[in-house]
Design a protein around this nucleic acid. Structure first.
Length: 434
DNA sequence: TCTGGGGTCCTAGGACCC
DNA sequence: TCTGGGGTCCTAGGACCC
């Protein structure tokens, strides 16, 4: 039997998605960039993660390595920015807060996307209301967006992409009563849940559009696309399997990882970097009020370097007791790293992962030796405060073992094109000239 | 020369126990 | 000594998302 929970009610969902969000954020604070090619780079200035429409027209691809487009950048005077996440996070907050004013219930799905349950607004003209909202957001925040409307979240998402591809719609596509147009005209890889591997597979089977896909029988779909694939197909057929999730779910895992500016082979150097990763990880867990039950480490060499053999390894370890203590996490992390480290490899990336997180509150209730736990907790917070104070004072560095210095700063990610923190740092607020 | 980071969910194989 | 089945936990890894 296929066990899928289906929603029988006639629901209506919308997906609001900002256009080229990061690039749009940069343009807001630099009006002279309007209608110019603008791109935002990933950490390490590695590849392109956001492009203004003008940059797209120059043929710059999403995810393209920056070094490959140097010529285009120079020739067409493309404005280049390193990613400025504090700025984007703040604009993201404003974006979602604005949506909250127009709709009864929203689910913040990502930094620049929200799902909306429109079921209670059925009696209104949803298309014109969404057009109005879209234009108000543009007027207030200067952030362009598109809205897709559909009977399920998957259809709303697809309708949103359709709106993006058809400028004549002015940013809103309502797929209700027009589902066939949507399903027959969008390529299969645009469906939420179909990535590169699945779309390759489906093309080979002669399935090119969502319309082709929903003709297949359920057993074939479950066999090849697994249970989530079947849910996706139900959603494309207009049977809702996913509801709005308006609560804020607890995280299950938390990662800190970075690529190195230059590769590193030496174990001691890796351990020093590991220490700084664990510091960040512990801070994140404390902020989330969570404890890790497992700790994982991964290291990899440069996968693009054809001259050297590629090496990548990942190991996880169960912790004796759930913790967010920087001291205990580091002790375990060092052991795991030794286990997967090979001296002859030039490492390019490392990461630490806290897995199977549980909340501090529920854990403490069950714990017998609460006192010991509290001591470790207090100790940890004191250590972190000290490290934070000194490490950000710029004078000296406090770390765990003796005589540690980070390896010559060589590994620090590159950020040559950073914009200012216009909205989150008082010293960098834009000044209006009168 | 230079190719991101942080998440989720699902599956499968091996170890281990009864 | 050989031959099992079934359940659970652990671990690794793949695919997807933004």
């Amino acid at each position: 039997m296929l066990s899928i929970q289906q929603e029988k009610n006639n629901k209506i969902f919308a997906l609001v998605d900002a256009n080229n969000f990061y690039a749009s954020c940069e343009i807001i604070f630099n009006p002279k960039l309007k209608e110019k090619p603008v791109i935002v780079l990933s950490n390490n200035d590695g590849c392109v993660i956001s492009r203004s429409p003008e940059a797209k027209q120059l043929g710059i691809k999403m995810g393209q390595p920056f070094f490959e487009i140097q010529d285009i950048v120079k020739k067409h005077r493309v404005y280049v920015f390193s990613s400025n996440f504090p700025l984007y996070a703040d604009m993201s907050y404003r974006f979602h807060e604005s949506l909250n004013l127009f709709f009864p219930e929203i689910e913040v799905y990502s930094v620049d996307e929200s799902f909306i349950d429109l079921s209670s607004l059925k009696k209104y003209n949803l298309t014109s209301y969404c057009l109005y909202v879209r234009n108000e957001i543009l007027r207030w925040l200067k952030i362009p967006s598109c809205i897709g409307i559909g009977r399920t979240k998957t259809l709303a998402k697809l309708a949103n992409k359709y709106a993006k591809q058809h400028p004549e719609l002015q940013g809103v596509f309502n797929s209700i009563n027009r589902e066939t147009i949507l399903l027959k005209n969008m390529p299969i890889e645009e469906v939420w849940g179909i990535g590169s591997k699945l779309s390759q597979f489906l093309y080979k089977k002669g399935i090119h559009t969502p319309y082709d896909l929903i003709q297949q029988n359920d057993y074939w779909i479950k066999k090849h696309l697994k249970i989530n694939g079947l849910r996706m197909v139900y959603e494309l057929r207009g049977i809702s399997c996913y509801n709005l999730e308006s609560y804020n779910p607890q995280k299950k895992n938390t990662v800190v990882s970075r690529s190195f500016g230059t590769s590193i082979s030496n174990l001691e150097d890796l351990e020093k970097i590991l220490m700084s990763f664990i510091e960040k990880l512990s801070e994140k867990l404390i902020k989330q009020k969570q404890l890790a039950t497992y700790l994982g480490i991964f290291i990899k060499s440069n996968p693009f370097n054809k001259k050297e053999p590629y090496y990548s390894n990942y190991k996880i370890k169960k912790l004796e007791t759930p913790t967010n203590s920087i001291r205990i996490l580091y002790q375990n992390a060092k052991k795991i790293l030794k286990n997967i480290y090979k001296p002859e490899i030039k490492y390019k990336k490392m990461g630490v992962i806290a897995l199977n997180l549980c909340s501090i509150d529920s854990f403490q209730k069950d714990l017998f030796d609460n006192q010991n736990y509290d001591k470790e907790q207090l100790r940890n917070e004191a250590i972190l405060k000290l490290m934070h104070y000194y490490n950000h004072s710029g004078k000296i560095k406090i770390q765990f073992a003796k005589n540690i210095q980070l390896p010559k700063n060589t590994w620090f990610p590159k950020q040559y094109h950073l914009s200012k923190r216009y909205t989150t740092d008082i010293n960098e607020i834009p000044i209006a000239k009168i």
